[in-house]
Amino acid sequence: MKLSSIAVVALLSVLLTGCVTTTPYDYSAFKASNPRSILVLPPVNQTVDVGASYSFLTHVTVPLAESGYYVFPVGVVEETFRENGLTDAEEIHSLALERLNEVFGADSVMYIKITQYGTSFQLLASDTRVTADATLVDGRSGELLWKGQATASSTEQSNNSGGGLVGMLVVALVEQVINSTTDRSYQIAGLTSGRLLSSGMPNGILPGPRLRERQGQ
């Protein structure tokens, strides 16, 4: 089920980005480092929504694990930081790699920053959007292995079904209700994370060792 949902996301992204020419990413450092494990630090939140960091963090394990990496259990990692008096994501991001190595021994470390999270209301549309960028560095040398950014929006799925101005107003009203009553941002964060962290995306992370072994490469 997880694989198929990732396939759908991958297919969608291919369709959506099919016409855009992207400059190929330089993967030489990534290939040389060849990490088996990824330590994802709690994301830094640059938005006004206080729930954004944890919301996004719950979505990072699935795409990275399905891509073939050992992902350090985010709950246990978070509790370990807390027991060491570290609760602020920015402070955690500024920790020296040597300190992280003492505890985790991770092949690579991922730093995520959330730049958009939430719903903006307009007259004829409301848009729930989540945008994040990620940086992956080698766990020992700190060398940059990969960098990426992704966004997802509720307006991608809603269709403006004609009907003139009244129809548009009805659609807008229904969407505003949906976007504000259910935690739409949480769902959209899952889409963003899938795009950002699945292997096989354009200029995305490379397939990890476990995925390559399964595919017999």
């Binding site: 394990t61 699935v62 694990a65 990496y69 259990p73 709950g75 246990v76 509790e79």
Partner: peptide
Amino acid sequence: VPPGLHAHLGM
């Protein structure tokens, strides 16, 4: 089982 599940359960 996915990575981390047994560790999380252990915690």
